[in-house]
Design a protein around this nucleic acid. Structure first.
Lengths: 160, 160
DNA sequence: CTCACACCTCAACTAAGGTTGAGGTCAAGC
DNA sequence: GCTTGACCTCAACCTTAGTTGAGGTGTGAG
């Protein structure tokens, strides 16, 4: 039983949930987070424009690529404000995700190599293992490993 | 200034943090979670066996592969209890992670393909997009896609 | 008119992987 | 003998991506 007050171009949150397969609570959440928007009818109920479905498709697809919502939001805010986005607008974002995906693939492939010469052989060396010690600060200050992780500036004396 | 009470084989949590680059709070956390263990000295301070460093190397390397701590913990519990693990013991686990990595790479490569024919071209179609609609329930009961996500039961019409 | 169901808001809870802070102990150095 | 620094515990907080529940409103059908 459609609640009847919705037209071809205005969907209730329940209808949008039904059509997108995304839960009502997630749609509320996406609106709160600024990924989608809605107007309200006389009874304060949300009414979504039909093109919202396309945004949701983009959100879901992006999440599957591993993009965090905050980044998806930024990308969506690059879409034109005044008009409904065209295929070309979406394609720009799609190419960006493709680049991200390719970098991820390359990183995993490098890790697969590292794994072969690291845990794979059982050595698990702090000096040599690229997985454990990506920076490879090996042998800089006498014997013993220094750091496991990249980007940590100093031994972080933990002022505990 | 090493606090002096530690021997070659027994490290304080601070020394372990220093050598591994893992924060003291994370080491506490790993111990609480059962990934590493320690004994205590007379003053109730933790003393870690030297081989703990190797477990930490394994933990860090596994995390970089994307394995959750709970799974890493299970793997660590498969190591022999009585003796210090040998290279061969670690290698067994390493081969398992390699399989995981390869599956991840394959999945990302599939997604890259899907992206090319989906957002990449700008269509973002709920009917055709494998990223948006991985199950592809397309054309089962008349025109239109059914669901965005897997596992949700009812079909729906798709006027976009 | 009443029922039921869709909708509303707001707060609290979930999971993972920790971090931060309060309050207290222990041992070394001056 | 006091201070300092490393250590201890426990509880609360952080982020991400939402879910769950309480309590209240709206609306179409019978």
């Amino acid at each position: 039983m459609p609640r009847g007050r919705t037209s071809y171009d205005e969907w209730s949150v329940g209808q949008l949930a039904e059509r997108s397969g995304i839960s009502v609570s997630a749609l509320h959440f996406y609106e709160r987070e600024g990924l989608i928007s809605s107007s309200r009818n006389a009874g304060n109920q949300r009414r979504f424009a039909r093109h919202t479905l396309r945004r949701l498709a983009f959100i879901r697809a992006s999440q599957r690529v591993g993009i965090p919502l905050a980044t998806i939001k930024e990308a969506l805010h690059e879409l034109p404000e005044g008009r409904t986005p065209r295929e070309a607008d979406w394609a720009v974002l799609g190419r960006r995700w493709r680049t991200v995906l390719e970098q991820q693939i390359e990183q995993l492939q490098r890790m697969r190599e590292d794994l072969s010469t690291c845990i794979g052989c059982g050595c698990l060396s702090f000096q040599r293992c690229l997985l454990v010690n990506p920076d490879d600060e090996m042998a800089k200050e006498g014997p013993g490993a220094r750091r496991l992780m990249p980007g940590t500036p100093r031994p972080e004396r933990e002022p505990d």
